[in-house]
Design a protein around this nucleic acid. Structure first.
Lengths: 213, 213
DNA sequence: GTCTATAAGCGGATAGAC
DNA sequence: GTCTATCCGCTTATAGAC
């Protein structure tokens, strides 16, 4: 890793922290440089402008996200309640780490077409991953048979939850805690319940107090 | 309506349009004044600053929203599929009218505690309205009996969809059209399907191609 | 109420030395 | 690579005339 690369990633780290705390609007390139102890000129040597910093953060974020997902989701691994919930929590913790981005997502992609293209591609990839998980769960007998069109709807239903649960908590005035994240998982579980197979239902019933319909 | 009030509401109207088009960050108080054909000084006579304009927009938005909701939702009226979908569409159109606000929601409430307090109150009110609709639907035999805790989860599940569907479309690179709004309704319908009563199920089946489980 | 004029300050960005 | 110095332009906000 070259010296330039090291400075670059220090800039990104600092920027993420400041953005998370105060938002991209309030944090200027000067603030980032000052927090890091480098000069504004130096920062501009590494990045053309603030937008480019944000895009670089997103690229990093996407890579980390996909690799973390693959780590805990062997595509041929068990489609079951525990793994689904673990994945949901992982995504939420991930969103928390880059929380400024999800907070400002709609505004950011509106004002930067290049970032929008990056995000849309990532978004589709994630949808495909969710869809694959659903298909796998059916194949493994964790979910029952589900018509194709319904699988599409289910995919979006799930992904929308994963994408916006943190935002939902924050704008509703709730703290992000283990408890509120767990509530998200409860809702997800509720969404999935109608689609569990007989055998999955039986094994889930033995666990914690899931509500029957 | 006094002259001051008329100018005030013209400022708000213009601000909403500009904010929707370019976002609150890109639109300055000067832009708003210029677009309206008044002087910057005049604008500052009516509002202390941009934040105050945004708060005023939100207050107006909340009032319009609640009154529109009550208009099409007689609390004792029919809890049925048609009215639920009509309500969803109404909310989406409403969100579209003030789309800048939902786009920037998380960032706006983060940087303005006063706005946050207003929004949280409104948010709770909306949750209560959704909850009431669920209870009424059960009472009227449109939904089957649902345990209390599950009703809570269902309330949030529905409200999250209503709140973020437009955002979901936009960040995914989709246009907001009749078709994409209808897809939101389809997802909502899917969420509700497990909770329909026998009689509601029968009447829904006769309608358009709803997917059975 | 509305205007004109303007102060004050900041953010973004670059040039050129080291 | 990094720094210092600096500039332009813009945004906010106010004072004071009408």
């Amino acid at each position: 890793m070259s010296k330039a690369d090291r400075t670059k990633s220090r800039i990104l780290e600092t920027a993420i922290e400041l953005f998370n705390d105060r938002g991209t609007k309030a944090v200027t390139t000067n603030h980032i440089a000052a927090a890091l102890g480098i000069s504004p000129g130096n920062l501009y040597y590494h990045f053309r402008n603030k937008e480019e910093i944000i895009r670089a953060i997103f690229v990093q974020m996407h890579e980390v996200g996909v690799s973390e997902y693959r780590e805990i989701n062997d595509p041929r691994g068990p489609g079951n309640a525990a793994s689904m919930e673990e994945t949901f929590l992982m995504i939420q913790r991930f969103n928390w780490r880059y929380r400024f981005f999800k907070r400002e997502l709609a505004a950011l992609v509106q004002s930067d077409p290049e970032l929008k293209a990056l995000f849309v591609a990532s978004h589709r990839e994630h949808l495909a991953m969710v869809r694959q998980a659903i298909d796998a769960s059916i194949e493994q007998g964790f979910f029952r048979e589900i018509p194709l069109h319904l699988r599409e709807l289910l995919t979006e239903q799930i992904w929308l939850m994963a994408l916006f649960w943190l935002n939902y908590l924050e704008v509703g005035g709730e703290e992000v805690t283990e408890a509120t994240l767990a509530r998200g998982n409860e809702i997800l579980r509720t969404m999935m319940l109608p689609y569990l197979s007989e055998s999955a239902l039986r094994s889930v019933m033995q666990g914690s107090g899931v509500h029957t319909l």
